[in-house]
Computed example of a mutant assay.
Amino acid sequence: MHCVDYNSPNRLRAGSAVPVRVNLSFGLEMLEAAGREAAKVERLLTAETRPDLMMDLSVERADREPWQVARELFDGPIGLLPHYLMFSPSEGLDPANLLARIEAVFKLGINFITVHCTPTLGLFEQAKRERLTPITSRGGGIVVRDMLINGRSRSLFAQIFDDICAIAAQYGGVINLGTAFRAASVADGLDAVVREEIAIQAQFIHKARELGVQVVLEGPGHIRLSELGDYWEMIAPLDVTPMPLGPIVSDRFSGMDHVASAIGAARLMSLSRGGIINAVTAVEHLGGVPNLRQMEEGLRAAQVAAQAASLDFDGTAFEAEAEVSRRRASLESCVLHSQDAGCSRCQRLCPLISASYSRVVPN
């Protein structure tokens, strides 16, 4: 698998044989919330546990974009979706304005962008025939709407992809290939639409490399745990760093999407032996903007998944686990972070206290 080197202040690497990285998304859904979002980002970035990457998903424009606020506190890679703020419900997307936006954000310090090159009218029609929910990707949905507004037969990103790559190469930027038709529910999972989209994505991965640009592949959204092995077998020959959007492996448990996502992400990252996990919050499908606590919980769940997967191939990850074991042995306690409070679970039957064995007399 290709390793990606992000041209950010801390030169982060992601991919094969590198510890699994975690991305945290944030953004502005209404202009009045700019102060609130800035405060959440500041709190998250001054905490002990920080993400490895961040992504601005803002759908409203502010004088200072949220990613610019984050950059003052964060030296890791930051990305965005350039079409989010460029789409007009009446006119769609303008290619010249979109390219200008891409060059402007790379010049200002964005390290990666997500583009949705795969939509075609044929694939969209197939999704409408074969799925209850044809599309769930917001970025992919914007591209499809632009196609319908402007009479395009394929994604605008596909039409200007060479120009995008030229800009990315100039600034050392990374391109995330978005998955416009990732399944909206586990019931669809790894269906024919997803398989066809992967074939199209392969073409753009090869094209980007020909043009000297590093690529990350966004992956499945909702998919059964048993299908993750099949998915990995399909993308492994592409030799690309995966960045799954989830994957959420069960839709049944309202308010537990961060758990379902962590399960799927750990499994896929174990198979791929490297990549990037997206932190998912508990309110992913509850219709609300996540608050600070929910973002912290989503980030921690993703970090647990990243550590669990990294243990399969990264020695530094295993050494962190070994250190926990040594501390438990030296303290004779399972409790490491609240020694003053002690432990009240096992009481005099605690198996870790060596003194509890001192009176055992062998026959």
Rank of each mutant, 00 (worst) to 15 (best):
H2R: 14
A14E: 07
A17W: 08
L24M: 13
F26L: 08
L31V: 15
L31C: 10
L31F: 14
A39G: 09
E42I: 04
L44W: 11
L53Y: 06
L57V: 07
L57F: 10
S58N: 06
E65W: 04
F74V: 00
P89S: 04
S90C: 09
E91P: 05
V105L: 04
L108K: 13
H116L: 03
T118I: 08
T118L: 02
K128N: 03
T133L: 12
P134I: 01
S137R: 14
S137K: 13
G140C: 09
G151F: 01
R152Y: 05
S155D: 02
I160D: 05
D163E: 15
I175L: 15
T179W: 00
R182M: 07
A183H: 08
G189E: 05
A202P: 01
F204I: 05
I205C: 03
K207R: 14
R209Q: 04
E218H: 09
H222A: 02
Y231V: 01
M234W: 02
V240S: 00
P242E: 06
M256H: 00
A262Q: 01
L268I: 10
L271K: 10
G274V: 11
G275W: 04
I277H: 05
V280N: 05
A282L: 02
L286Q: 11
R293A: 13
E296H: 06
A301G: 01
Q303M: 11
Q303C: 05
F318L: 15
S325A: 12
E332F: 03
L336F: 01
S344T: 09
R348P: 11
C350Q: 10
P351L: 04
